[in-house]
């Protein structure tokens, strides 16, 4: 198992780097969503640096797997993943949310290499992902489609329309990952509008349901392998995460959903991420 261990260490280092880029770009922008970007960083790392078929020098390559960031406000995590993976220069990240930058507050397919789907309005990304999966089925193609949702996002009715559709058409080429960080803008998901029991609901909707620690690189990877091997039904991975993961003063703090750190806070955050093990 030595090789896997080394790979895991490497992926963990990439996730740390991704978190640092997230902090840097949101700080430079003066606005953005650090909490839900940090909670998704390990999932993004496993997808972009291990599991997805991609060609950074050929973003529209026919054989690519598709990723849809249904929780579009976690754009910094996606931009960091794409830049670190080589889709565009890392230096561009500091243009986040600035006038004329391709790196809009929420991702736009027409502007950013590697972004296949424009998202930002919650609940729509999963439908678009399901549409891609259905189209790939019509064409008999083997590409896999991943959609990353927030747990608060699951309050949108359209999410359940899309889940119903994906199960009805047996879209086993679709894997829905839910970043279960248990917080949303107005507070705890359970208090704002409970979506529990999420696993039972997904199961009842016809999904293969897996639960993982969304910060354990190996567990996430194994869940994705299991999802890809599943036949006849789509998979939903509930990834239990910590909002703001990796920065002590942001962890589990609802206030860090959509606020940029001040420079001194950013410096502390970056130091903590440097020391993170």
């Amino acid at each position: 198992m030595g090789v896997i261990f080394v790979d895991t260490l490497k992926l963990e280092a990439t996730a740390r780097q991704m978190r640092q880029e997230i902090i840097k770009m949101i700080t430079a922008a003066g606005s953005g969503h650090p909490g839900g970007s940090l909670s998704a960083a390990d999932i993004m790392t496993v997808l972009y640096f291990d599991k997805m078929n991609l060609r950074p020098d050929e973003p529209k390559w026919d054989g690519r797997d598709y990723f849809v960031l249904s929780k579009g406000h976690a754009a910094p995590a996606l931009y960091a993943a794409l830049a670190l993976r080589g889709f565009f220069p890392v230096e561009q990240l500091e243009t986040l949310r600035k006038l004329h930058s391709p790196l809009q507050g929420h991702p736009v397919s027409t502007k950013v290499p590697g972004v296949d789907v424009s998202t930002g309005s919650l609940g729509q990304g999963i439908s678009v992902a399901a549409g891609i999966a259905k189209g790939l089925k019509i064409d008999g193609k083997p590409n896999h489609v991943y959609a990353l949702l927030g747990d608060g996002e699951c309050q949108e009715g359209e999410v359940w329309e899309a889940l119903m559709f994906a199960a009805h058409y047996q879209l086993d080429n679709l894997t829905v990952i839910i970043d279960r960080n248990c917080l949303q803008i107005d507070g705890k998901v359970d208090e704002v509008m409970s979506i529990s029991p999420l696993d039972k609901k997904l199961d009842a909707f016809g999904f293969n349901v897996l639960m993982v620690n969304g910060h354990n690189i190996e567990s996430i990877g194994r869940a994705i392998d299991t999802a890809k091997a599943e036949k006849g039904r789509p998979t939903a991975i509930i990834a239990n995460t910590v909002k703001g993961r990796g920065v002590s003063f942001m962890e589990n703090q609802v206030g860090w959903h959509g606020n940029a750190p001040k420079p001194e806070e950013a410096a502390q955050a970056l130091q903590e991420l440097q020391d993170m093990r």
């Binding site: 789907v117 729509q124 990304g125 439908s127 678009v128 549409g131 189209g135 359209e158 899309a162």
Partner: peptide, 8 residues
């Protein structure tokens, strides 16, 4: 939105 996915 599924139409958008197919068009993608």
């Amino acid at each position: 939105a599924v139409a958008a996915g197919l068009a993608t």
